[in-house]
Each structure stands twice: as C-alpha cells, then as structure tokens.
Design a protein around this nucleic acid. Structure first.
Lengths: 365, 365
DNA sequence: TTGGTTATTGACTAGCTATGCAACAATTTG
DNA sequence: CAAATTGTTGCATAGCTAGTCAATAACCAA
C-alpha cells in the first residue's frame, strides 16, 4: 500500500536541516516568526531535496482544495476553446487550480460527479449544454456552488450566466428584414440544445410580428459539416430562402461554403447569412460573416466573480442569473444597409440598435 | 483556520449509521468483508449526507495523486484544442485526473511549477513550445516524469513525442518541386519555435539538394493574421514566389486569403500553398488546403502510454523519444500531379511517397 | 459439548502540514 | 539588577481514509 515516496516532506527537510518540522513550515509561511539563520538552513536543505510545501494536508485541515472543476464538451468549437482558455487564466490568476473534466458531447456529466467529489473541488463550472435533472439533484445536495454556462438552470447552489439568446434571435430577424430578406430559414443546433431553441424562438417570434411566415427549419449539429449539409438541403431546391440565421458560426460557415462552392450562389446577393458566437474564423477574409458576438469577456468575468464569492461565503451563493446581451457584428454576409452616416428611413435601423443597447439583466432571487 | 466543512466525512456517515468508520470505508472498497446489513445502513446514511470517499487522505498515504498536469499555451490553434481534448479523454479513461495549467504563450512554465508540485502531480505533459533550461533543471530534480510534446528535450525524467518536422519539410519541398514550383518561400512561426525551424531546415535542405535557391523567408506567428501579413509581404512585389510552405495551417489559410481576397491571385494557379497540422479548417471547402497532418492519434496514444508506464514504475522512466512521420494530405492548394493511375515520369512522384512511408523511429537511450 | 474455521467488526495507525501553546533566549526598560 | 517585552523554537494535534490486527460472533464437524 505505502509506495515509495516521490516528493520530499517537510519532515525530511527538517531532519536534514537539523530543525523541527514547524520551522520548515514557518519558513514557507509569509510573515511567520523564523530567524534568518534557520530560514537559511531550511532553504538549503529544501533546495537539496527539491522540497515544496504540499497542499494535500492543508486541504484536509481547511476543507478547501482551491480546486475548481471545469466541465467541457465539444472543444471542436473555437468558441469553447477560447472560453476554456479565459476561464483557466482567470481562475489561475485568482489562485485556484483547474481540474479539467471532459464529457463526450451528448452525454451529461453524471458519470464525472464521483471524480469531482472525491477530489473535493470547491466549485464546478459547467460549459455543458446538458445538465440532467438527476445530476442537478445530486450536485445540489453536495453543497458545491455550480455555475452553468449558457444553460439556464437554477437553485440554491446553481447560478447561470447566459447570453440573451432570445433577444439575439430578434436582432437577427430585425437585421435580415431590414436588409430586404423575404423568405427565411433557421439552422438548428443538435437536438435538445436550449440555446439553439431560444435563438430560434426570438427569431421566429419577431418574424411573425413583422408579418412574415415562419422560417423554414433545418436540423444541424453546431458543426461545420452540419451547416454544409443544411445549406445543401435548404438552398438546392427551387424555393430557396434568401435570409438564413444559423444557430452558431461553425454551421454558418459551412452553409456559406455550400452556397458558394457547391451551388455557385453569391453571398450576400443570393442568400444572406447570420451566425452566432463570433469565432475567429468568422472574421477571416474568405467569409466575412455577419454574426452576433457573445460577450465572453463579461460572461467569464462574471462567472469568475460568482466562484470567488461563493468560496468566500462558502454557503449557498447560488440562484444568481446573469443574462448578457449579444452584440451584432456586421461584416459581409448580409447586404449593407443605407449608409450609416445619413439616416434615411431610420425606423427599422433604429430597432436593431435598440436591441443591442438592451442592458444586462441581473436577477438575484 | 478550520473552516466549516463542506463535504461529509466517513466518520460522519459512521456516526449516523451507527457503525465504525472502518465499516464505511469497507463498504466502498470492492471485495472487502462487510455484511449486507451494515452495507445497507452505511449506504443509507451516505445517501442522506451526500458522502463520497475522498482521495485526499489516500494521496497522503500512497504518495500517488492520480493527477496529471497538462500544460498548454495558445489554444487559438485548433490543433492544440484537439490535442487537449484527446489527452483529457485518454487520461480520464485511464483513471487519471487532469490538472490544467495555462501558460501565456511566449512564457515558459517556470512560474507554474510551484503550483504543480504543491498538488503532488504524478506526471506532467507539456504541449508548450518553450521549456526553459532552468525549468528543465528544476523539474528533473523533482523526480516527476515529464512528457514534452513537439519539443525535443530529454533526460532521465523527460521524454518527448514529436512529429518528424525535418522530414515533413522535405516532403513539402518534394511536392512543390514536382508540381513545377520555381521560386519558393517559407513562412516562419514565432521566434524561437524549434518546430518551425526544423520544418524550414528540411524544406531548405531539400530545395538546395535539387538545385534551387534558398526559399525567401517571412516572419509569422503561427496565427491567421501573421499568415495574412506574410502573404501580403511575399506576394505583393514583382518577384513573387509561386510555391509557399507555411509553418502551420493557420498561417497558410491567412496567406491564401491574402492571395485570393486581397491580391486577386489564384491558388494554386498563381501560387501553391502547403500548410502543416491538418486542422479542421484546412478541409473547409473555401480553402481545401494541401497540408501535412500530424498523426496526433499515434502521438497522444504514445504519450499516454509513457505516462502510464512511468506511474507504474514510479522511477526514472524518461529518456524515451518518439518521432512520428507526418502524412501528406493532398487537397486543392497545390496543382494536381500527373494522374495517379498511370505512372508517367515516376521518379519525383515516388520520392514523395517514400518520404511518407518512412517508419516511426523510436530511440530509447 | 468442544475445538476449529470463517465472517464480520472496531480500535488503532500512518501519512503531512499549519497552528496553538509553552518554553526558552535575548533584549529593552525601569 | 530585576522585570518585562520581544523574538524564536519545539511539541503536540487536528484533519480523513485504508489497512493491519485483534476480538467477537456465528457456524460446522466430531
């Protein structure tokens, strides 16, 4: 059972330095009372043995591991890669460590829970679309603060940070209508993605309010390949839509390629396309995709603040909800409007702007 | 100092169930001797308190944390995102946990070392380009197995897994010469990237051997934007090269956009472009980039095997080195060769194939 | 009934660090 | 010079789990 040890312990250092273990511990505790002489002896011995104080016994004593679990799914989406990077940097800067948990896309994190619990993580940040009711139930009984990213779940221990998907859907509708779109379509994300359905809801709702027929729907998967397939399906027939909103950028780029490279259609002249996320590829010259950016700086910052606060309080700091508005990024995949400098028929134009100006809504319950 | 506890302990469960702590422990140890009656009492109490056994005291006893640190830099590159995902899945499947450490690109992991050590990680996998001599020195004194990904560093505790960059450079040269390239250029990665320099070395060497002038060089940064800038620099002048090898795909895609979208050049008719990595975007219809794929399945698998073995031996399992050949993926950014079915002037063609067939070289020292 | 075997259980301990406490030394103050 | 203050040090301990060991209970065969 007891293996050869790999790391030196404070006792080892103490023995070598000829001092007590307490002296070693105090050497590494800023502001503790140690004479310069002993400190030097300790540091010399520590250097020889390659000693660094261990967090492990400290975790036992303090009931704080400084470990935050980051649960991620499909990293194929550059948006998630970026978010992951931001979170990791932020958590590290705040003195936490990141325990990365990968869950195969489509699965819930149920299977990962024992792992997290056995390492006594202080908080969980989930960027996972799917959080099963069973998992929610089990997790909240553990008294661990949980931040759900882009999935609106709440209870005493779960908070969420989401982009305002419904408003974003409306923005897309307003823009496409203003730019003379006449027949509309929406490319969905994978089945059961609440984000995708919310975006559709805002989109369809606003189109209806403006007197247009419901958008044609195509099933996608949040991937490039799905967007390509959806594009071929929607655009090959005779009654092709001229304004398409895609559940995310990856699908939008696939759809643009279907239109241009496969069907020889022009974007935006023949079809206008709007995406969602504003991944780096959206601004690449070959695409110049008009899209709605999630303000992930604000979103991750706020999520970080919730984590930090929850750890300080170490009590039910949940039930907070932040909804961050998306920001329309106009590039070339939608026909340009009347010149912005002079305001000709300002009305529809202004409505798009208004949507964008909608303030962050914070609802502490 | 002693905070309110968040997680229930086995003692808590024992008290509630009216049994000893040992009984609780045994309930969770497969094959241990517990009567069904006590097991039920324990499980009931555990469910009520939300108890799961903790790894923390076990780490102290066994000197094994099952924690593997994964050190990553720029996640902007989809190749790294993919690699990260693969590693995480693999490590989880093997029963390890992943401690994610992000190091700002350009920095070494020196600053992160104390963090890793204080959590008593069992091994370190570094996907970082830069491993400073100081860091190498410090780490190897700690007796932790280290796997360096795509950076050839070795000693008793450090192993490496790399793509055969030099051979890949030669492959690119062979291909571009065979397809009638006449004036060549190479777009470098950021300063101090050994991978980029190795690729250049093979490229320039082979060009020289075939009697061509040294390739023009342009400084890039492994990013799309750098490739775009390099493209403008190389292709705007009158003496523009007609065959360009880029240090990675991201830059190659930027360069293609510079050529097509900004300078109205045709690819591959006016310029041929070869990339490196085979990221998903390389196969997107708008680009169809010819590139050299790193066999990251083989590479990550092997790295995982080193980790596993090192942990079993828990002794100096370093100094292993795997060099994996790259694989040429022909798409549309290079002029097609003579039809593959009939072999006309076989010689140069065959040389490309030979290079690709080069077997994996494994050098245990 | 008795001796022996098996199954189950609880007490105890290792493992490592931070900290309260007491002891001690050194220094300053009255 | 005595007393008080300050600075330094070591001892003992909490915190939690897996395993060792001894004790107990249950059972069977003779």
């Amino acid at each position: 059972m007891i293996r050869k040890k790999r790391y030196a312990s404070s006792t080892d250092v103490a023995r070598l330095a000829g001092v007590s273990q307490s002296a070693v511990s105090r050497t590494y505790k800023p502001g503790a009372s140690v004479s310069n002489e002993t400190r030097q002896k300790v540091l010399a011995a520590a250097a020889e043995l390659g000693y660094r104080p261990s967090m492990i016994p400290q975790i036992m004593l303090t009931h704080r591991s400084n470990l935050v679990a980051l649960v991620v799914g499909g990293m194929y989406n550059p948006f998630y890669a970026k978010t992951l990077e931001r979170f990791t940097s932020g958590l590290q800067a705040a003195g936490h460590q990141v325990l990365l948990v990968h869950v195969d896309s489509g699965h819930t994190l149920d299977g990962a829970i024992p792992r997290l619990v056995s390492y006594r993580v202080d908080a969980i940040v989930s960027a996972l679309a799917i959080l099963s009711p069973a998992a929610v139930d089990e997790l909240s009984r553990l008294n661990i603060p949980i931040i759900s990213f882009n999935t609106p779940v709440h209870n005493d221990w779960i908070s969420s940070v989401c982009c305002d998907n419904v408003a974003a859907g409306r923005m897309a509708a307003d823009l496409l209508v203003e730019r003379q779109g006449r027949s509309f379509a929406y490319v969905r994300g994978p089945l059961g993605s609440p984000a995708s359905e919310e975006r559709l809801q805002g989109f369809a709702e606003r189109l209806g309010a403006k007197g247009f027929a419901a958008p044609r729907l195509s099933q996608g998967d949040f991937r490039y390949e799905g967007g390509l397939a959806a594009g071929l399906e929607l655009l090959a027939g005779p009654e092709r839509p001229d304004a398409i909103f895609c559940g995310n950028d990856l699908m939008a780029l696939g759809l643009i390629d279907a239109a241009r490279e496969r069907l020889r259609l022009r974007v935006p002249e023949d079809v206008m396309v709007v995406g969602f996320d504003d991944i780096p590829q959206a601004s690449w010259e070959a695409y110049r995709l008009t899209t709605i950016a999630q303000d992930e700086a604000v979103m991750t910052d706020h999520a970080l603040r919730i984590v930090t606060r929850a750890m300080e309080l170490h009590s039910g700091a949940g039930n907070e909800r932040l909804v961050v508005p998306g920001k329309l990024i106009e590039r070339g995949s939608v026909r340009p409007g009347a010149r912005a400098s002079d305001a000709p028929d300002g009305a529809p134009r202004r409505s798009v702007r208004e949507e964008a100006r909608e303030a962050a809504v914070k609802i502490p319950t």
